[in-house]
């Protein structure tokens, strides 16, 4: 079998149904982490693609009084994942990004990145529903909801995975969710910390 094809099907299928977990085949080494450490410049996405992906991630996890996906650098995580472990998803992104532009122009006569937040959300709601007016028929046969599911899953992973993979910049994601970092990395927890009687110092220096 072709492991590339099944990986693509699995991550998209898993993202749609919500449980990627271990239902994902993969290359044997964490190459994306190495790539992310080497560079935060685009490896796969073109300059315009980068901006569009970044804008979509910003609507999936928006900024409020705390950082969102843009501030956490999720687009950089996605670029490095597409360069390595998730290379099989490149066609989904290529077709999907062209589709987003087509839908955006059809509905608002502007590219996606020029739209206001509410208009961007309208486009994403249409993609998620699978009924996106203007989405190119035929093409690579990637339906809009699959593209949306892939970017949504990638954004969450970029927000919450270890920063070494290129997202979760300055632990932005872990700060938002209150995760102190890997417990063994922090030296473990005491029984008093397990019951809240003593505070835990997170990997980013604050107490949780």
């Amino acid at each position: 079998m072709s492991s590339d094809v099944s990986r693509r099907e699995l991550i998209v299928g898993g993202a749609v149904s919500g449980g990627a977990l271990w239902l994902v085949l993969t290359l044997p080494r964490p190459l994306a982490a190495r790539a992310a450490q080497a560079s935060s410049r685009p490896l796969v996405l073109g300059a315009d693609e980068w901006k569009t992906v970044e804008a979509i991630t910003g609507r999936i996890i928006p900024v409020d009084h705390e950082p969102g996906a843009v501030e956490a650098g999720c687009v950089n995580f996605i670029d490095k994942a597409l360069a390595h472990e998730d290379a099989a998803l490149r066609p989904v992104y290529r077709a999907g990004l062209a589709g987003v532009e087509a839908v955006s122009r059809k509905r608002f006569a502007e590219p996606f990145v020029k739209l206001g937040a509410e208009q961007q959300d309208e486009v994403l709601v249409a993609l998620e529903s699978g009924h996106a007016d203007g989405w190119p028929a035929g093409g690579d046969g990637i339906p809009p909801e699959q593209f949306f599911a892939a970017v949504r899953a990638h954004t969450i992973i970029g927000f919450l995975a270890d920063p070494k993979y290129g997202g979760n910049r300055d632990y932005a994601g872990w700060r938002v969710v209150g995760y102190p970092g890997g417990g063994h990395h922090l030296g473990g927890y005491s029984p008093a910390q397990m019951t809240g009687k003593e505070k835990i110092t997170a990997v980013w220096g604050k107490e949780v």
């Binding site: 994902v24 085949l25 993969t26 964490p30 919450l160 270890d162 993979y165 890997g182 990395h185």
Partner: peptide, 18 residues
């Protein structure tokens, strides 16, 4: 072994990768 959730749990690159 480490605490890396992406590598270990989500991508399953440690225990039965293939």
């Amino acid at each position: 072994f480490d605490d890396d959730e992406l590598r270990t749990v989500i991508r399953d690159q440690v225990f039965s990768p293939d």
